[in-house]
């Protein structure tokens, strides 16, 4: 640097670097609203000097603010503060800030919840599934006493049994043999004593029980009064679908929601 001519480098408004004839270092020049500061930056590296100069300016500004706070000169404070953007605001309205934080959080939460609604609802059964799972009608006039019909409802076989008068008589007498003797609704466990409607799924391990209406001794029961026998694990049910004692199946055959409308049985609608 020595021997070179003194030069002046403009950095930004009110801020510049300059060299002096007999100094190897850069000097800083800062002018804040007419107040001039100068000092040697003790470095001959230009980039370093620029950094130091900027830091120094910030120091002056912070310092200036402190000094000014003690001074009564209001107008000077005003001009200086307007030039002190980098100084963080000290006065924050915390109540307002808190209120805004809460409000925006609530709005944000509502937005997320709102977005979730359609996505969660889309997992409900679709119209197609509802159409396939809709109630099934069955004309009971075709079903002879003692006969059983199998109707599919929601991919489950539904057994519809037309009870004979003998069977209706026998059912209460089996109360000793079945595990849960109380007859729901009526003798047939439906609202119509003549017809039993049960899901054809064994309550043990979901095999399909076989229909054995005959009143005769069977390999699995000497005193068989008619009913369902599950070939998988030997569970026994009476004609109303009640489970016998001491068999693997824990509960009665399930009765699906259903209703009777004259001669029509509607499965799927109670």
């Amino acid at each position: 640097m020595q021997g070179k001519k003194a030069k002046h480098i403009h950095i930004s408004e009110g801020m510049s670097l300059y060299t002096r004839d007999r100094s190897p270092f850069y000097w800083g020049y800062i002018n804040i609203d007419g107040e001039v500061f100068k000092k040697s930056l003790k470095t001959d590296d230009k980039d370093e000097a620029i950094k130091l100069l900027t830091l120094w300016k910030d120091e002056i500004l912070v310092e200036g603010k402190k000094v000014l706070a003690q001074k009564i000169n209001v107008s000077a404070k005003k001009t200086l503060i307007s030039n002190t953007k980098p100084i963080p605001k000290e006065k924050v309205n915390t109540t307002r800030r808190k209120a805004l934080q809460i409000t925006s959080s609530v709005v944000g939460a509502v937005t997320v919840a709102g977005f979730a609604v359609p996505f969660l609802s889309a997992w409900q059964p679709s119209e197609r599934a509802k159409a396939l799972g809709a109630s099934v009608k069955y004309d009971l006039s075709k079903l002879e006493p003692g006969a059983m019909a199998v109707v599919e409802w929601r991919r489950t076989p539904i057994f519809i049994v037309h009870q004979t008068s003998e069977a209706i008589k026998n059912l209460p007498s089996l109360n000793q043999k079945v595990a849960n003797p109380a007859l729901e609704e009526g003798v047939s466990r439906t609202t119509n004593d003549k017809f039993s409607v049960v899901k054809g799924v064994c309550t043990h391990l979901s095999c399909a029980p076989k229909y054995h209406p005959e009143i005769e001794p069977k390999a699995w029961d000497e005193d068989w009064k008619g009913g369902f026998f599950c070939p998988c694990h030997g569970s026994k049910f009476d004609l109303a679908g009640r489970v016998y004692k001491n068999v693997p199946a824990p509960t009665n055959l399930e009765v699906p929601p259903h209703s009777f409308e004259g001669d029509t049985l509607i499965i799927g609608e109670a």
Binding site: V117, P118, F119, S121, A122, Q124, S126, E127, R128
Partner: peptide
């Protein structure tokens, strides 16, 4: 979500889009 209801076969693709538009709840919105 659309992928859950879409069918990627030549026979089923077009109808599955209409299925999304009509039968799936909020499918049209997706």
């Amino acid at each position: 979500w659309l992928m859950m209801f879409y069918t990627n076969t030549e026979e089923g693709a077009f109808a599955s889009v209409e299925y999304i538009m009509r039968d799936v709840e909020y499918g049209w919105l997706m």
